[in-house]
Measured scan of single mutants.
Amino acid sequence: MQIFVKTLTGKTITLEVEPSDTIENVKAKIQDKEGIPPDQQRLIFAGKQLEDGRTLSDYNIQKESTSHLVLR
């Protein structure tokens, strides 16, 4: 499924993911596309910070959901 990640600069990154993917996996995909190390990434969805060990389905992130990327 596709999800979108919006950066603070207003850029939207499109990612191909599975509901069973962990947040860690998603951060690795963002690193592949954008070159941002996962330890600098914070992903926010529905006002919550997403934890590495959880999956997209844990957070009820469905296709075409948009989460926000904040850099630390």
Rank of each mutant, 00 (worst) to 15 (best):
T55G: 02
F45C: 05
K11V: 08
K29Y: 06
L69Y: 02
A28I: 14
R42E: 12
R54S: 07
E18M: 14
Q49I: 15
E64N: 15
Q2Y: 12
L43S: 00
M1Q: 03
L15D: 00
G35C: 06
I36P: 03
S20K: 08
G35D: 05
E24I: 11
I36K: 02
D58H: 08
I3G: 00
V26I: 12
P38R: 13
Q41K: 01
S57F: 09
S57N: 10
V70R: 08
D58P: 00
K6I: 13
N60R: 06
Q62Y: 11
I13V: 05
K27I: 03
Q31T: 09
Y59K: 01
T14I: 14
Q31L: 09
L50S: 01
L69I: 13
I44T: 11
D52Q: 04
L8Y: 13
L56W: 03
E16G: 06
I36E: 02
E18R: 14
A28F: 12
L71N: 06
Q49S: 09
Q62W: 10
L56I: 09
G47P: 01
G35Y: 03
E34V: 15
T9I: 07
I30H: 00
T12Q: 07
R54L: 10
D58I: 02
D58L: 02
G35P: 02
S57R: 12
S67L: 15
F45T: 02
K11E: 08
P19Y: 07
K63Q: 12
L15Y: 01
E51D: 09
L15Q: 00
S57L: 11
Q40D: 08
R54E: 05
T55I: 06
S57A: 14
K63C: 08
T14S: 10
D52F: 04
Q41Y: 12
S67M: 15
E18D: 12
A46V: 06
K63D: 13
P37D: 06
I61V: 07
Y59P: 01
E51T: 06
I23E: 00
G53R: 10
V17N: 00
Q31G: 07
I3V: 05
E18C: 13
M1W: 12
V26M: 05
L56Q: 00
Q2W: 10
Q2G: 04
D52Y: 04
P37Y: 05
K63G: 14
G10C: 10
S20G: 12
I61T: 02
E18W: 13
T55S: 08
T9N: 14
I23K: 00
I30M: 02
D39H: 13
T14W: 07
M1H: 05
K29M: 12
Q49K: 10
R42M: 15
A28T: 10
T66M: 11
S20D: 11
L50F: 02
Q49F: 13
E34T: 15
N25H: 13
P19W: 08
N25E: 12
R72F: 15
A46S: 09
K27R: 04
E24L: 14
I23D: 00
G53V: 07
Q62T: 15
K33Q: 12
S20P: 02
K33L: 14
